[in-house]
Every structure is written in structure tokens, then in C-alpha cells.
Write a protein that binds this DNA or RNA. Structure first.
Length: 488
RNA sequence: GGGUCGUUAGCUCAGUCGGUAGAGCACCGGCCUUUUAAGCCGGGAGUCGCAGGUUCGAUUCCUGCACGACCCA
């Protein structure tokens, strides 16, 4: 039937119900049990058992199998789906006819006795039912469901009705956020909120979105990271702070990138990046236990073990091993060797900075192999303007990136707190910007002034939570873990 | 930005070496009191993504565009 006819048929039924005095959109329903609660209470019965009790369920009617004067259906609520049974024996013929006149997709309340069928399936024998919301549109196919990716993303509510995995991803996000908060709260951290609209952006190498404040008459940036504000809280003596919120980076969309993404940043005074590693292990372990009950997971049909402690490897060692290149060479010689070996190198990188070349080698020759959690340690100073120099190496900083399933999920430093060094780093960034690097970080005088007050040495870490959620939700694309993915 | 693939009924998909299209589910009617992708009988349902081109004729071939997926930058 054409879609218009399907819609018209439901509209006619809606009118008919109103004529019969039925309110198709009543105000509330006193539910006593979710589906999961019914299963928890009665799930262990053998076949052909009655319970002698009555439950009130509410949810969406997602299947209806008529057999003359009896029918089976399925009701789906937040916690799952359960079979229901309706018969003229219990309802009488008039109510029964009304029951089987329900449409797939209708939201209903049903009250009745849980029992088990001859096959042992837990079923609710409907004694009363109430239409709670008439559905005026057809549902996707019951067996194959809704598969078309474009429709799934454009009509996400329909996707959540039809696909359990889509709903599960929303739940996993909530579990991950809750676990991060519980872990950090238990460690004595304070959850804070810092500006999203910023007069100067900073804290990450990225191009910003620009917006405009009419009353102030000035442009503002959507933050690319909360880092500089969180550090100013450290200066202010808050000592252990974290923020969970949206960052915005003006870049493309891919299976790993979304222009707005959820970040967790945590800063702890008096620690260094060793402490940040402990935090990373603790946070991920807590999430794994909350979502899966174990730290031995499966991601995309491959085993993934996130049990701490994790592998630690130096960036330069990994890159040297993965690319075969001598990364201690000066930039021109390194570029020559890369090209001699036939490795890809985007032309703009040939002029450096050298750190970007090494980072590129990490991405192209190493990262895919970093499946179980791996701390990649000690980054080049020239691409790390907010991190403290590595003890004993002037060209490196105490910084790590955490890789899981071949993807970067976190980035952490021993935070730079020497205001004069920080000013020099900003100057290096300004020079890069002058050289055409649109992602270089702008100098922030207010931040420097606060650093001059004295910021305690500190561990700092930032997680891309969407990517972490992908791991725990076993999803291959960031769009699958966004309730409403971006659309063109 | 580049390459490859895709877009057919509400949904999931076939198909047409160029002659305006099919199935299952869903929907409508009938039968059916333990089904669970229920079953049986019957029925209706399509601008074949959009716009051009070639052709007697295009859903099919060609070009462009839109949207999407994957890969590359």
C-alpha cells in the first residue's frame, strides 16, 4: 500500500476511536513493572505455570499475531520486550475486538497475570489494556528492521524503536559518563564548568567555530578545549578538577571525528604524567566494569583486554620500529629517508615542524597496531606547547597519548607551569601560524598572567569520550554513539 | 577535495543484455484459542533519487546534480 494510504488508514482509525469515546492520548498510566522487572520476578518458571499475580506494563506494541479468538503480541519498553496474550476467554468478545484493532507501534498499557506458555515463554495474560498513544505511522519491517543508514540517522527515533543496538549505544554512553564521574568524584575531584563561548580559544591545535555576541558586539569562539580555564582553576587553588562537556573543532566528519564531541579533562595538582597514567587506567577500568562487568572485552569481534597496567612505549621507539626510519636525524634527512622508503608524506609536512612528521609516522606506520591500551610516551616539544619538557631531553615533553583499538582516545601531560617557558611556546605557535598553520594555538595573555601567579605542578589528561564509548558500545563509527549524528 | 560503490512499494531486497517491474514483511478482507519471522485463502499498493542526453522507446545506457557508505588527502 502506498504510504499515503497507510497513513490515511491510521487516521481513520484514530477518528473511529474518538467516535467511540476513547481518548487516544491519555495523560498517564500507573505502571507497576518494567519488562525487566517482570522477568526478574517470574523469569525462572517452567512451562505452563500461572503466577496468580497481576502486573501493569506499558510500552510499544511491536508485534501482533491473531488466531481467531486469541492473539499473541509483543510489547517493548525501555528494558526489553515481552510477549502478551489476549483471548476472548478473559476479555470477552467486545474488548478482544478492540485489542486486536490496535496497530503496530501503538503505545499501550496492559494489566494482567504473568504466566508461561507450553514452550515456557513468560507471557502476560491481558486482563485490561489502555491505549496510551496512537501511532499514526507504520513501523519498519519486523525481521530485518530498519537498516538504511541514512534513514536511521535522519529518523533516529524510528531507529531507536527498531534497533536494540542503537538504544544500547545511548545506554552505554550514560554508563561511561556516570563511571567517569563516580571514579573522579571518589578520587576527590571537583566537577566544574568553564566557558564554551570564549574570547580567545586555546588548549588544542584545531580550527575553531566562530560566533557573534550581539550585545557585546564581538565575535566569540566555541571552545576547542577547556584546558586553559581548568588550569586557571589550579592556579586558584582548586587542585583537583574535571570537566565533561562538548568541544567544537571546525573540521571534517568521519567515522572517528565529529565537529562537536564530548571531552573529559581532569587536572590534579602535584602530580605529573605518571599520575595521569594511573587516572587513565582507573577511569577506563571503571567504565569497563560498569558496562561489561569485566575488563576483558570484545571489540568488533576481536578480543580487547583493558586490564591495567597497560603497555608503555616511547613514541620515538615505536615510530623508529614501525617506519624503519632513524627519527633522531635532522628534519631534512628524515624527510629524505621517508621518501626514499616510499612512505606517504603530505607535501606541507616536509617543511616541518619535525614533530608533525613524527606524529604523521605514528598515524601511518604504528597506530593501527596499538590494539590493547598503550601509552605512547614523550612527544616532540614543537607540537606540544602546553606540556613540560621531559626530564633529560630538551626536544621532548612529558606527554602521552593513549591508544585503544588503534585509535587515540586520550592525551595527557605533565602540565607546563613555567610562565616564561609558556610564553616562548606560544611564540613558537605564533610563528607556525605566520607560516600558514591554521591550527596553531593563539597566545592568551590572561592565561599567562594567571600562570605568573604560580600554578602547582600538575597532571592533566583529556579523553575523547565518544571514542571511548565506541569501544564499550562495540560500534565502528562515532555516529553510532551520538544520539543525533550530524546530517548534511 | 579525489576515488569506488550505492539510491526500485511504508520496510528488507530481487529484477529489467533498452519494450514503464516482482517477492517477503507491513497494510486491507476472510478463516483460525499456545503463537512467537504464526499459518492458510484473497486483495490493493511504485514519478525505479533528481535533471538533462542518446533512442521509435530509458527504471535500465551516457552526463551532471543531490544524498549516503567505504577508502584516500
Amino acid at each position: 500500500m502506498a504510504e499515503a494510504d497507510l497513513l490515511a488508514a491510521r487516521r481513520e482509525k484514530l477518528l473511529r476511536l474518538r467516535d467511540q469515546g476513547v481518548n487516544p492520548y491519555p495523560y498517564s498510566y500507573a505502571r507497576t513493572h518494567t519488562v525487566a522487572e517482570v522477568r526478574a520476578a517470574f523469569g525462572s518458571l517452567g512451562p505452563h505455570q500461572r503466577t496468580g499475580t497481576r502486573v501493569r506494563l506499558a510500552g510499544r506494541l511491536v508485534a501482533l499475531r491473531r488466531m481467531g479468538r486469541a492473539a499473541f503480541g509483543n510489547v517493548l519498553d525501555r528494558s526489553g520486550r515481552i510477549q502478551i496474550y489476549a483471548s476472548t476467554d478473559v476479555l470477552g468478545s467486545e474488548l478482544y475486538e478492540r485489542f486486536v484493532d490496535l496497530d503496530l507501534g501503538d503505545i499501550v498499557g496492559v494489566a494482567g497475570e504473568p504466566f508461561t506458555t507450553k514452550t515456557g515463554e513468560l507471557t502476560v495474560d491481558v486482563g485490561e489494556f489502555t491505549l496510551l498513544a496512537k501511532s499514526l505511522r507504520p513501523l519498519p519491517e519486523k525481521w530485518h528492521g530498519l537498516k538504511d543508514v541514512e534513514t536511521r540517522y535522519r529518523q533516529r527515533a524510528l531507529d531507536f524503536i527498531a534497533n536494540d543496538a542503537a538504544r544500547r549505544a545511548v545506554e552505554v554512553r550514560a554508563l561511561v559518563l556516570r563511571s567517569c564521574r563516580s571514579y573522579l568524584d571518589a578520587q576527590g575531584f571537583l566537577e566544574v564548568e568553564t566557558p564554551i563561548l570564549q574570547p580567545i580559544y586555546g588548549g588544542a591545535s584545531a580550527r575553531p567555530f566562530v560566533t557573534h555576541h550581539n550585545v557585546l558586539g564581538r565575535d566569540l569562539y566555541l571552545r576547542v578545549a577547556p584546558e586553559l580555564y581548568l588550569k586557571r582553576l589550579l592556579v586558584g587553588g582548586l587542585e583537583k578538577v574535571y570537566e565533561i562537556g562538548r568541544n567544537f573543532r571546525n573540521e571534517g566528519i568521519s567515522s572517528m571525528h565529529n565537529p562537536e564531541f564530548t571531552a573529559l579533562e581532569a587536572y590534579e595538582a602535584f602530580g605529573d604524567y605518571e599520575r595521569a597514567m594511573e587516572l587513565a587506567e582507573g577511569i577506563v577500568e571503571a567504565c569497563a566494569l560498569a558496562v561489561a562487568g569485566t575488563t576483558r572485552l570484545t571489540y568488533q569481534e576481536r578480543e580487547l583486554d583493558v586490564t591495567p597496567p597497560w603497555r608503555r612505549a616511547s613514541l620515538l621507539d615505536l615510530v623508529a620500529e614501525g617506519s624503519g626510519c632513524d627519527v633522531e636525524k635532522p628534519l631534512p634527512e628524515l624527510v629524505a629517508e621517508i621518501e626514499h622508503r616510499g612512505l606517504p608524506l603530505p607535501p606541507p609536512l616536509r617543511n616541518g615542524p619535525k614533530g608533525k612528521v613524527i606524529e604523521h609516522l605514528l598515524e601511518t606506520c604504528v597506530q593501527d597496531s596499538l590494539w590493547n591500551p598503550t601509552f605512547v610516551l614523550d612527544f616532540p616539544l614543537d607540537i606540544s606547547p602546553l606540556a613540560k619538557r621531559k626530564r633529560g631531553r630538551d626536544d621532548l615533553v612529558e606527554r602521552f597519548e593513549l591508544y585503544v583499538t588503534g585509535r587515540e582516545v586520550a592525551n595527557a601531560f605533565s602540565e607546563l607551569n613555567d610562565p616564561d617557558d609558556q610564553r616562548e611556546r606560544f611564540a613558537m605557535q605564533e610563528a607556525l601560524r605566520a607560516g600558514g598553520d591554521s591550527e596553531a594555538q593563539p597566545l592568551d595573555e590572561d592565561f599567562l598572567r594567571d600562570l605568573e601567579l604560580g600554578m602547582p605542578p600538575a597532571a592533566g589528561i583529556g579523553f575523547g569520550l565518544d571514542r571511548l564509548i565506541m569501544v564499550f558500545a562495540d560500534m565502528p563509527s562515532i555516529r553510532e554513539v551520538l544520539a543525533f549524528p550530524p546530517l548534511r
